[in-house]
Design a protein around this nucleic acid. Structure first.
Length: 291
DNA sequence: GTACAGGACTCAC
DNA sequence: GTGAGTCCTGTA
């Protein structure tokens, strides 16, 4: 991979396994919006950045080489050998072969743990456009103003301190629905007890999940998602309706409980369970498998 | 108007 | 520790 900077654009050449559409639309993130030119503009790590792919070049606009090295290289998980990971998965069975081919270029973003905690509480019994709207409203109302980019104003995701100041009613007004009280309770707890959720990254997966499950509004599936997308715990296997459907279609009995499907996934895919889940989820959702 | 899509909590058992 | 009912919002 070659990295150069022109103005406020960082250009990456010859990056393998990087497909913006699949990265930003596979359900792992909520703040990346497709633009008219098929690029994606996102708010992450308190900054606004635009990602565009043309041929073998990736253009990261509104940033610097320094930020690329300090932030985006890790955020986009560019240090991982996706090639060998995908090679391991795709020979496991024909379904993963199809799913990895379909989701070619997915990368699991290393997102902020706190933001994932609240975002996935909102995701419970909810749909992606609604989740995006709620997060956007929370950021606009309680987060720090970042600035304008291509005619749009952008706000950072609120810190625990900022969010804990919001009332339940104000949170509800951001179209969070019945999850308002969970968001209130969780941000209150994190702020009042001065919890740094990023510390959970250092814990073994089971311990990390146990800590996450203590928060109001966090159940097994939401905890798995936070651990996978915000804490780099790749040996988890979040089971939502789509994963349940695809697993029942291809791997397990129709009447297996969510807990047992999760156990099956972790035992079968091991350290790569999180990646396998992402490919299977994306594949299942795009093709409506098991509906 | 009504049905439906989505996980966590609560309260049985 | 397992299962049914309830929570909210937007779309069809």
């Amino acid at each position: 991979m070659k990295v150069t900077q022109q103005g406020n654009t960082v250009i990456l050449e010859d990056v393998k396994h990087f497909n913006p559409k699949h990265i930003f639309e596979c359900g792992q993130c909520f703040r990346w919006i497709k633009q008219e030119d098929d690029s994606y503009t996102g708010v992450a790590m308190g900054k606004v950045i635009n990602v565009k792919q043309e041929g073998n070049k990736i253009y990261l606009d509104n940033t610097t080489k320094e930020d690329f090295e300090n932030i985006w290289y890790d955020y986009f998980d560019l240090g991982r050998d996706y090639e060998s990971m995908v090679n391991t998965l795709k020979v496991m069975d024909e379904y993963l072969e199809k799913a990895t081919e379909f989701g070619e270029g997915i990368r699991i973003l290393k997102q902020d743990g706190w933001e994932m905690l609240i975002s996935f509480i909102i995701s419970a019994n909810n749909r992606i456009p609604m989740i995006q709207r709620a997060i956007n409203n929370l950021s606009k109302n309680f987060g720090t103003y970042i600035g304008e980019y291509q005619g749009q104003e952008y706000y950072a995701f609120p810190t625990p301190e900022q969010l804990s100041k919001a009332t339940v009613e104000e949170i509800r007004a951001c179209s969070t629905g019945f999850r308002d009280k969970y968001i209130k309770s969780t941000s209150q707890t994190v702020n009042d007890e001065n919890i740094d959720v990023l510390e959970y990254r250092k814990l073994p997966t089971d311990q990390c999940l146990k800590e996450l499950l203590k928060f109001n509004g966090v159940g097994p599936k939401v905890a798995d998602c936070i651990a996978l997308f915000g804490m780099q715990k790749y040996d988890t296997f979040p089971v939502d309706v789509w994963v349940k459907r695809v697993m029942q279609e291809f791997y397990v009995d129709e009447d297996l409980s969510l807990t047992k499907i999760r156990k099956f996934g972790i035992e079968k895919f091991g350290d790569l369970a999180g990646f396998a889940q992402q490919y299977l989820f994306y594949y299942a959702r795009e093709f409506g498998i098991g509906r």
